[in-house]
């Protein structure tokens, strides 16, 4: 089990950093520009996974398990979030028959 960090370390940390930042940015842009609730939600998940990737890389580079533990926490929390989020989206869908967030304007922004 100790070899995987070495594999990770064969690639410079900056690469991971740029990669996950790019992924994160894609997620952010997606959230800000898309209208479909599910797509927005998937973009959020993308952001979380960008974080996970970076954490894993950092964990390998620092030889510190706490970052990996954090990944676990993030996954668990993300799962819970998925559940609640999907439930909310389904509930909304049943009422307005759409997942377009722009249709929801009963409350003004």
């Amino acid at each position: 089990m100790n070899q995987i960090p070495e594999v990770i370390r064969t690639i410079p940390l900056e690469y991971y950093l740029f990669f996950s930042t790019a992924l994160f940015a894609i997620g952010v842009i997606g959230v800000l520009t898309r209208r479909n609730a599910i797509v927005i939600f998937m973009c959020v998940e993308l952001m979380l996974n960008a974080v996970n990737i970076l954490l894993t890389a950092l964990s390998a580079y620092r030889a510190d398990a706490s970052a990996q533990v954090f990944v676990f926490f993030i996954m668990a929390v993300a799962a819970a979030e998925v559940c609640v989020g999907l439930a909310i989206i389904v509930m909304t869908y049943r009422n307005i028959r759409s997942t377009d967030v722009q249709l929801l304007s009963y409350l003004k922004w």
Binding site: V31, I40, F41, M47, L48, E81, G85, M91
Partner: peptide, 16 residues
């Protein structure tokens, strides 16, 4: 519904 959806999407986004 709308409140929950907005809160959720925004909340998750800022959590990220």
């Amino acid at each position: 519904n709308e409140a929950a959806l907005k809160y959720f999407l925004m909340g998750a986004f800022f959590t990220g």
